[in-house]
Design a protein around this nucleic acid. Structure first.
Lengths: 139, 139
DNA sequence: GTACGTGCAAAGGTTTTGCATTACA
DNA sequence: TGTAATGCAAAACCTTTGCACGTAC
């Protein structure tokens, strides 16, 4: 369980059943779930689980850099356990988010790089997924 | 007033004092304000204004393509009257959003472009603005 | 005159928080 | 045992909505 070990490095991080269940669910997960989806998938499987714990855990993991909080969906935060460099495309119809794994080289213009200290970047692509495209054609 | 004229093209779009005041505030505005900031800046200047009207107007303009809804700030939507191709950098400390006007060429990987119908893209840069950098040094 | 917009207040959805209890280390 | 996490409920936000009234066209 890579994620759990990774987090274990942090001092004072307790491995509770709830956290381990959340981490297990996120491990290798590429569906970019929302907090609610994580809660629904994990609750009942391992003891009790509350929404507060889901949010507490996600925020703790985000701050520890073990998780990425995605803003690509305007209506809710999505979470991505893949912290490596990659980007995303969202289907504007069904809100499905898919990884765009390739490296994209981006040069920040001088006007900005001379002022800002750059920490990172993320490319959002907008499109229509195959499923929704077919649905549109049939409509 | 370019924005107002642009919108005027749409049939059935009524030029109310509230809408004109919002459009006047947004015209040429590069501060990427939130709905609340727009409300605070416009209220009182021209007759009455309610939050509902601000949101109604922003949503109408977004759907008409006269405005861009930015997701770069995880805590709230930001609005950008500049609908031309450009990107943004956000200061992770103070949440200030600055335009990145240059064209950035992005090639979508084949795996994705073969499946998704691509509609657009947007690059988010994360960094520390000069003001916050100085504040950190002095801290 | 009529369809559309406004304002108000209430509701909806997401996320956070206070506090007593529980449990990991 | 002591610190940190959990659960519950309430609250805090942001945003949307229903409805009566008002107004642009």
């Amino acid at each position: 369980m890579k994620q759990a070990n990774k987090i274990g490095i942090e001092k004072g991080f307790k491995r509770t059943p709830q956290r381990l269940a959340i981490l297990a669910y996120l491990e290798g997960n590429t569906s970019h779930p929302s907090a609610e989806e994580i809660f629904n998938a994990v609750v009942g499987k391992d003891r009790t689980l509350s929404f507060a714990t889901v949010y507490n855990t996600l925020n703790t993991l985000s701050r520890a850099g073990a998780l990425r909080e995605l803003t690509i969906d305007p209506s809710r935060k999505r979470y991505d356990p893949n912290t490596g460099a990659h980007h995303h495309i969202i289907c504007v119809a069904c809100k499905k988010v898919v990884d765009v794994p390739e490296e994209i080289t981006i040069d920040l213009p001088k006007e900005v790089s001379q002022n800002f200290t750059l920490l990172g970047n993320h490319v959002e692509f907008y499109g229509i997924c195959p499923t929704c495209r077919k649905a549109q054609k049939n409509a």
